[in-house]
Amino acid sequence: MHELSVCQGLLDQVARVAADHGALGVKHIVVRIGPLSGVVPELLQQAFPLARAGTMAADAALMIEELPVRVHCDACGADTEAKPNRLLCGECGDWHTQLISGDELLLASVELLKEEAHV
């Protein structure tokens, strides 16, 4: 949900990174998303061409790395992988767990185009 405005937030951040580095454009954007962020990668990918139009990233490609859901068990101490709607310990099955990964919404890296670049 909210994928279009999440894209706009993303492109704001990218525009700042590009401006800080004096870049002429943006080539690649890599984001990391967990299923419990509430953002659907496919919808983000669909919204991206709409959001990037007219920005510094108008020709940029978006790569989305999907992160696994992982929990830490308060009962047995194990760190295990889980499903978004079943956050139980994979070792002992207890539900007293803490999410340690899976709700991320991160800008991982940006590849910039620069005037002086000899590529």
Partner: peptide
Amino acid sequence: LAEKKNAQGHSAVSVLTDLLS
């Protein structure tokens, strides 16, 4: 907040929660 997409003068941050933050 959504409209000032190209506001300058902010430092780069590596978390993409701009609108939600």
